[in-house]
Design a protein around this nucleic acid. Structure first.
Lengths: 225, 225
DNA sequence: TTTGATATTACTATTCCCGTAAATTTAATT
DNA sequence: AATTAAATTTACGGGAATAGTAATATCAAA
């Protein structure tokens, strides 16, 4: 893992670098906010350890800066300021965890692990959309629900993808025809109804919780119900 | 947000439920590990607050169980056991954060926010109108008041949206018929009265503070009164 | 060219919404 | 209090919106 430490006190920095380098981590070090910002914005780290009181730019400001650029990078604030007020300022700036000095090194390790575990877990390796227990594989162009594998034609796929990307919102037939069929005027067609019907047979018919719902006079909405 | 609290001490549980229910959170409570497991495995929560020392099944065991099923659900351990050893056991079981009692409620809130922030990052921001405690969801085309979910037809929705966007102003029936029904001349219709009546039944009838008010000879106005 | 698969249109039965009209209640005015 | 106007409420018929199916057109592959 790649770790960035922003810490001005050389002794503490050395202690951290020493301790972390041991366990298959690559550690980089910045001694002030300026340096920290440069490194953090240029490189991608698995986690950033941030001292609050550092020269040039405060840890809180740096935290905001990093979170506005790469919000997914976990930030662990590491500081002697231990009041609840201080912690709130840190969390408000976007910090993911806040550890008060002095701390036991083992606890730091555990918290780093917990934070990176979540971050890594969240990366979706597969190219899929999920709504309830319905899964759409964008690569294979297949849908799955329960233990059923659902084959889709091109138009069926487009419509289902549209619904899944816009779950929880009502769309009128006109909206749908525009976005999925690229027709920019009302042709008096009923393709949407027909395809909704086909999709329902495929993804809803055999299951108790329905995903495609009609809102009379308004349109269709996808949601678990 | 949907929160599960697993805590056997009723006083602490009440304190947490009280504090969290305030800020648009739905809170459920389990008094022992068994109950906690049932709820956690059956439902999907945005975060689970877990006491370590609870009857039947320990918090650590429960944590492992939950993480083996739904690893993406964040778990915040909440306990009086404050040694580093205890924390390590918690983190090893898969906890995402560990807070030692006693703590300030604000810090708990901040940590809950930090843990759920990442998961909620992808959710689209809510598109809603508010008047008093009445909420109109423009995406779902639904209204909410108290804990009631109010379904609306197309015309009901249009009229309610008109009232909510123009709260605090009196509009004559003619104004309303023009803006909501697109009728540009007086047809002697009483649609407005009829639909106001329908809306009142849906959004005002069961609540002490009314939102739609009649100004005799002038028209209608929406405001909290 | 033929065949099968997919896309689109046409049509019918059904459901549900909308707006009218009439009855009832409430408010304003003399 | 009586009268009149305004507002509320209910009931109902017409008609639009929708589901579902069948028929036709289009496209792709062999």
């Amino acid at each position: 893992m790649k770790i960035l430490i922003v810490e001005d006190e050389q002794k503490i920095a050395d202690f951290l670098i020493e301790g972390l380098s041991g366990q298959e981590h690559t550690v980089e070090h910045a001694a002030d906010g300026q340096q920290g910002a440069q490194l953090a914005l240029k490189n991608k780290y698995d986690i950033i350890l941030l001292d609050v009181i550092i020269p040039v730019m405060s840890g809180v400001e740096l935290c905001k800066l990093i979170k506005s650029n790469t919000p997914e990078t976990p930030i662990l604030m590491l500081t002697a300021l231990g009041t609840t007020e201080d912690k709130l300022i840190g969390f408000d700036a976007g910090a993911d965890d806040y550890l008060v000095k002095p701390f036991e090194f083992k606890e730091l390790l555990a918290r780093i692990k917990a934070l990176t575990r979540r971050a890594h877990h969240h990366e979706t390796p597969k190219n899929t959309l999920h709504v309830s227990d319905l899964i759409l594989d964008l690569d294979k162009k297949l849908a799955y629900r329960g233990d059923k594998i659902i084959e889709l034609t091109a138009k069926e796929f487009s419509l289902l993808e549209f619904f899944m990307r816009n779950k929880g919102k009502v769309y009128s037939r006109l909206d749908i025809v525009e976005k999925v069929w690229d027709l920019n005027f009302d042709t008096g067609t009923n393709i949407v109804e027909v395809y909704v019907n086909i999709l329902r047979k495929k993804i809803d018919k055999d299951f108790p919780t329905k995903l495609i719902h009609t809102r009379v006079g308004l349109g269709y909405i996808m949601e678990e119900r």
